Computed example of a mutant assay.
Amino acid sequence: MAASLSAALTADATGWGFLNGAAFVVACVVAALLVRPSDLLGLTVSPPLAYFTAAVAAECVLTLGSTGFVRALALGMGTRLADIAPWLFLGTALVLIISVFRGLPSNVRAFSDELNGRRPRA
């Protein structure tokens, strides 16, 4: 989340919009490669949530002191999410692809077994 927040603020300051999306994709790939295989299930939903949290924080910082804070925040978030949407899809898709090859299907099976009260296989 810190990488997304700093990239969002840097992209706004420099005018390089692609920096925000590229940092998100890089953070997604690094997270998918470095997380423990047992945590892959939780990782698959985390990148968009983490980006949204970082984007709200960045927009709050950027709109402080403006009149109509809530309106400015809503407009800024709408614009930011519209601009970053392709990057969000790419980063999330890469996390899913990498996670599948690192063992996500077995995590889903284990979670399903746990929810259904089945014993793990020996």
Rank of each mutant, 00 (worst) to 15 (best):
F101Q: 15
G42D: 09
L9N: 06
P37G: 12
I97N: 02
L96M: 04
R36Y: 11
F111G: 10
A31S: 13
E114Q: 04
A110P: 07
A2L: 08
G21F: 09
V100K: 09
V56L: 07
T14V: 07
N20E: 15
P105C: 14
L5G: 02
S99L: 07
S66R: 12
L94K: 08
L96T: 01
A110V: 09
L94W: 05
A54L: 02
F18I: 11
L5K: 13
F52P: 02
A110F: 11
S46F: 12
L62I: 09
L73C: 09
L41G: 03
G15S: 12
A32M: 04
G78M: 12
A50D: 09
A82V: 08
G91Y: 01
L5E: 05
A11L: 08
T63W: 12
P47I: 08
M77S: 00
N20R: 15
A11H: 01
G103K: 15
D83Y: 02
G117K: 01
V56M: 05
A27E: 07
S46L: 08
Y51N: 08
W87S: 08
A58C: 14
F89G: 03
V26E: 00
A11S: 04
D83A: 04
L115F: 02
A7V: 09
N116Y: 01
R36Q: 06
L33K: 11
A85D: 11
V26F: 06
V29Q: 13
L104E: 10
L9R: 11
S99F: 05
G15A: 07
S4P: 02
P86C: 10
R36D: 04
L19M: 14
A7M: 07
F69V: 10
T14P: 03
A23T: 15
F89P: 00
T10W: 13
